[in-house]
Amino acid sequence: MRGTGLVRGIAKPDVIAGGSLLVLGLLYGALALDEGLGTMADSGAGFFPFVVALVLVAASAVVLLQSRRRTPGGLTPPADDEKAGAEGDAEGDAEGEGDGEVRWWRIAGVLAAALLVPAVGDTVGMITTLAISLVLMAKVMGVSRWSSAVIFGFSFGAATWLVFVRWLAVPLPAGMLGLF
């Protein structure tokens, strides 16, 4: 069960998510009360949010209860939004899809690289920043050679300029340096 986050029969991700949403629901309900509920015939801005908050708190409480009742050793199956079998199983499947371990450092690295764009995109230039961001993402993802990553990143930058700036005429910031 290594890496599953399972603690004494309680699925940890369920508890964290359910608990957080319950607290957020209570906070949201309090904010909704501030907006004013009005009356049934003349409902205020806070009426609908308050109803939503009530249902959210109740449903989150059910999620927490369900997670505590889970059979010892049971795992939380990840959501299967639209791709059947998109999420990893505890073991790799027969087709060699992969294991269930999450490489958090890769996720952190990719997100940090992506956050470069809102951080410095307006100053340096959107396309240049995006290209650098993709170079870094490619390296985090395991592209071994820097030359390959650079070609990959700057090709994407060039393609973005062609499609978005030239073809669709979307104004992307050129930055203080006047770069793309």
Binding site: V110, L111, A114, L115, V117, P118, G121, D122, M126, L130, S133, L134, M137, A138, M141, G142, V143, F152, F156, T160, F164, L168, V170, P171, L172, P173
Partner: peptide, 30 residues
Amino acid sequence: PQTLMPLVIGLCVVGVYAENNSMFDVVVML
């Protein structure tokens, strides 16, 4: 997918910025 997914994220960043020219939207998306 390690090659494809940075492309997806890159497209998402540009696509969301193109709507409102807003870096706040990019942060919301991430």
